[in-house]
Design a protein around this nucleic acid. Sequence first.
DNA 1: TCAAAATCGATCATAAACAAACAAATTGAC
DNA 2: GTCAATTTGTTTGTTTATGATCGATTTTGA
Lengths: 271, 271
Amino acid sequence: MLAEERRFRIREILSGQRTITASDLCAALGVTAATVRRDLAALEQDGVLVRSHGGAVSRMSSTNFQPSYETLSHSHSNEKHAIARAAEHLVLDGETVFLEGSTTVFELARGLHQRNRLTVVTNSPTIVCQLQRSSGVTVLCTGGELQKDTFYFSGEWAQRALSEIRLDKAILGVSAIDLSYGVSTANHAEAQIKKMITRAAKTRIALADHSKFGTQTFAYVGPVADIDVLVTDSGTDPKYIKGLREAGVEVVVAACQETRKGPSKRTHSHK
Amino acid sequence: MLAEERRFRIREILSGQRTITASDLCAALGVTAATVRRDLAALEQDGVLVRSHGGAVSRMSSTNFQPSYETLSHSHSNEKHAIARAAEHLVLDGETVFLEGSTTVFELARGLHQRNRLTVVTNSPTIVCQLQRSSGVTVLCTGGELQKDTFYFSGEWAQRALSEIRLDKAILGVSAIDLSYGVSTANHAEAQIKKMITRAAKTRIALADHSKFGTQTFAYVGPVADIDVLVTDSGTDPKYIKGLREAGVEVVVAACQETRKGPSKRTHSHK
DNA sequence: TCAAAATCGATCATAAACAAACAAATTGAC
DNA sequence: GTCAATTTGTTTGTTTATGATCGATTTTGA
């Protein structure tokens, strides 16, 4: 195998997963650790990745472009993983779905990598980057002006794009949900986009971990009855689930199987 | 077998697979390694491929969905760095500029991080992610359908967005430039977008490293006279620079300060 | 904190691939 | 036919890529 080809492979691997260990690369590429180290050094010089003891972290991967304020590493990451995995099954091959930018939906997007004949529309550059290497997924982006606080597109271009499409399913992250007040969000532009997505989709799927329940924020989006399916984690108070079901919402409770036992199971995050 | 036919066979092989080893070519063509090397050198000169120790990597954007060598690799990264740095000075605070997705332009975008009162419009999700943390830069994205080979947006949404704006400057990557044929690109959709950007901008700035000169590809974009400023590296044949200037193009030659002198090229980056 | 294990950087040896110079074969013009 | 130009193969020394080795450094777990 050519050296260039080998480095291509490393890039490919890194575009799928954010980090890679040197020993894994040895096995995957069939070369010794010395060669892997040389490759990683070269790729680091090219700005593709950042080396760290035992492996490397991608710099090009979309994971890197994630919003910093709500890094998914800490806040309810297990719950979000579980929710994303459960919601993933609601997306079927051949469908056209909207993915709205939020950390949970981003988790979900990662799981759609291998799909076939799937069309994804999104207003999140992060999700576009996440799916840009997936050959079986057609990716459309609304465009618009990038909101610096939420990292997704809104504005006239986004709204007009949304006004021109009809979707099988829309998957929305929810930042606040209350049985009586309904769904709300902190940002006015975001609320407007959410409303338009809601109108454009046949089936509306909302993702909300347990911490979002019983809260209200500034900008009103719509009543809970607008939601067709809500996916949440097992930590949600049953009274909310009951209330939602009474309002006609199908509620999916994702089992949070992976209990965090070791305080630091994650290896290469030494910084 | 004629030399021309042999080289055509190499092109054929490379359109099917991304890489080829020199020894495989020896066997396939029934010639010695010296001849194969000569062929590869000629084809590299023509911009068809990039040689690598033991073989070569295709530079053509392949027919299948796989991204081309150019989009993934940082080949000629020194030259591209120099070009990006030089072009950066052409962008002034307060302006509205279009950044078209290409590896060189991506380098440039990285340098705009600290700017103030700058408005950037782009059709590249990578550039959006690159600038999404820059508080002084307003980012707009055309949206559209993501092209899986080039990683940027095209299609109706992108075209309509471009038809509605006027820009101070447009910065475009050039994949092939020839004095008589003009600028061309491998992808039809891309050519269309480039044409629209050209129309929307008051000043058109093209970035092209030396390997792009004297080449032609499938889709025609426009004559060289459409370019206002062209930034290239010092490896470009002076005859091209002269020809461009005669056509009324302002040519900026970026000094590639980091000369690869010692035997330690990219390996042994002992800091 | 210490000690064991893993990983790293540097160096060297080797084999493969390289460039360059030269020789042989081929081609085309006269 | 001869001669020059081109192309291809061969030879030669040089460069490059890779794997092995050896301390040095870092991580990990107690």
